[in-house]
């Protein structure tokens, strides 16, 4: 119906711009998988032919597997903690009249904007003054600070999107807070929970700057890649590894975004 209105009549130049925009947005990233199949140690045109050799090489490398396992461990723990805390915080923010709420929300959301290097450096200084050795735990703490705001931000619209009287109705029908949460709240925000888990996992999995300052002897995958970037002869295998990471990240985030917004937008528009 709205297609026909005067304001929304098609605008051809804008349409072309939009397509170019998307191409420019994606193409740079696509060079990584493209060159990862290139049968040459040099990353340059012309392409030399198709090979899976760089992927095969990855398979046999012990450090890659170690780094992968480190990243997965940190990612899983961080995503679970930040999602659980995100649920709890988002509920408090949307359901209770609490003095100072705005300040607290701003505080929680700060890591979204402030450069990560400042948090990384600050944590590094704190940990070293306290004599805490750098390890995957310290990386996890750093990631938690980055991921918590994303968890809260993903879950907030979910909580805002459903009528608070649902929870009141449950209490009114005799369920205490615990049962109300499991019988009403959780099923209602479930898509948001999955979205938050996927998103925070991906962010932790891909995070570099915190890991850069806080990693001990066990590198995460991005740290491993960073280390390899110094050696030009390692470029092709780094490309192969990067292509795999990109693929997994894109997939997880795509699912998370679909879930995170599913139902919310349909209901409102």
């Amino acid at each position: 119906m709205s297609d026909g209105t005067y304001i929304r009549r098609p605008n051809r130049p804008l349409q072309i711009y939009a397509v170019i925009f998307l191409i420019v947005l994606y193409v740079p990233v696509l060079f990584i998988p493209m060159f990862s199949f290139n049968d040459s140690i040099y990353v340059r045109f012309p392409l030399q032919g198709f090979t899976l050799q760089w992927y095969g090489e990855l398979w046999t490398r012990e450090p890659v597997w170690n780094a992968l396992w480190n990243s997965v461990k940190v990612g899983l723990v961080v995503s679970v903690i930040s999602t659980v805390l995100g649920v709890v915080a988002a509920r408090a923010i949307t359901r209770y009249r609490i003095p100072g709420k705005g300040t607290m929300v701003t505080f929680i959301m700060m890591p979204l904007v402030i450069p990560g290097i400042i948090f990384g450096v600050a944590l590094l200084v704190l940990l070293s003054r306290m004599g805490v050795p750098l390890s995957l735990y310290t990386v996890g703490l750093g990631h938690l600070i980055i991921c918590l705001p994303f968890g809260v931000a993903t879950l907030l619209p979910r909580f805002e999107g459903f009528d608070p009287s649902m929870e009141e109705a449950s209490a009114d029908l005799g369920e205490n807070g615990w049962w109300t949460f499991w019988r009403v709240t959780f099923p209602m925000v479930f898509p948001g929970v999955v979205a938050s888990l996927l998103l925070t996992f991906t962010i932790s999995f891909d995070e570099f700057i915190m890991a850069f300052f806080l990693t001990g002897t066990d590198p995460t995958l991005p740290m491993y890649i960073w280390g390899q970037l110094r050696f030009p002869q390692e470029f092709p295998s780094v490309l192969a590894l990067s292509a795999l990471i990109l693929f997994v990240s894109f997939f997880l985030v795509f699912v998370a975004q679909r879930l995170g917004r599913a139902g919310l937008d349909n209901g409102n528009t």
């Binding site: 009528d163 009287s165 649902m166 009141e168 109705a169 449950s170 209490a171 009114d172 029908l173 005799g174 369920e175 205490n176 109300t180 009403v184 209602m188």
Partner: peptide, 18 residues
């Protein structure tokens, strides 16, 4: 608390669990 009260409520929005 509400869940221990011998009263029940019909909400303005009905609050039917979707």
């Amino acid at each position: 608390p509400p869940h221990h009260r011998p009263v029940n409520m019909v909400f303005q929005s009905y609050a039917i669990f979707p």
